[in-house]
Design a protein around this nucleic acid. Structure first.
Lengths: 136, 136
DNA sequence: TTAGTTGCAAAGGCTTTGCACGCGC
DNA sequence: GCGCGTGCAAAGCCTTTGCAACTAA
């Protein structure tokens, strides 16, 4: 719980029952859900909500910087409600599960044991994002 | 050029004209092609090659560890023929272009000017990969 | 009021699959 | 010759889009 709704209202985000439900589903989640999982949970709170609306709302939360999109090699995108504080990801190559980790020190050094959550870590990768000269 | 074909033959990979052409397209490429781009270039060398076969070959090269799959947030996957030597990626948020970079020092510190290739870098992310307890 | 949001269903991009034919070893 | 690889077309998954009806401010 981090008062995502409060921040959204404060920023003048037009509030509808659908958007509120999507925000409620994300806020307080510790795992990283796919759009379809967000929809499934939203349906429990608001049975009529459509998938398209969930995609719309997620896209906007990402634009607003409140939620981060995490790509996981071919699988469906996952949404990280913890976009405001820096952290890294531990991704399961088997099922796509993602956990947040907060290593200190060199990110490419071995992940500390207590940060592995039982994972067998096979590697780390760093990606820099930005705009290339043609797109800037 | 790094004699990808030689390594593949050495590892007993069953060689067909289609597989040879896919390997030839990747070997010597400095950019990171999508499956469709690989197919387009392969067609120039072997007009009858099908998309499915290109996908098959790419999947195997990835399993063999000779090529790395690079995910780029929603877009088509790209294939990195430079899987054998460690390096990081600089991804354009606009067009998906990927460049290899070889920063020294802390990966999360700013990327050195001479490693930016004109990109406007907006951030860096680290992902650890492995198997979760349930999948191990 | 009125611009922005929703739901539906259809279309779209990328990738995988099923199956008969063909080819490397 | 055997078994794996290939091509085709169809299906699949995830996501976006077009448009009429609706609703927050």
């Amino acid at each position: 719980m981090s008062d995502l709704l409060g921040r959204l209202r404060g920023r003048g985000w037009r509030m509808t029952s659908q958007r509120r439900v999507v925000a409620e589903v994300l806020d307080g989640e510790h795992v990283h859900l796919t759009a379809d999982e967000v929809h499934a949970r939203a349906v429990r709170l608001l049975p009529e909500i459509s998938r398209a609306t969930v995609y719309n709302a997620l896209g906007e939360l990402v634009s607003l910087g409140e939620v981060a999109e995490v790509s996981t090699d071919g699988r469906a995108k996952r949404y990280d409600p913890n976009a405001r504080q820096p952290h890294e990801h531990l991704v399961c190559s088997g099922c796509g599960l993602i956990r947040d980790v907060h290593p200190t020190g060199d990110p490419l050094a071995d992940l500390p044991q207590q940060e592995r959550f039982g994972f067998t870590v096979s590697g780390a990768e760093v990606t820099y994002r930005g705009l290339c000269p043609a797109c800037a």
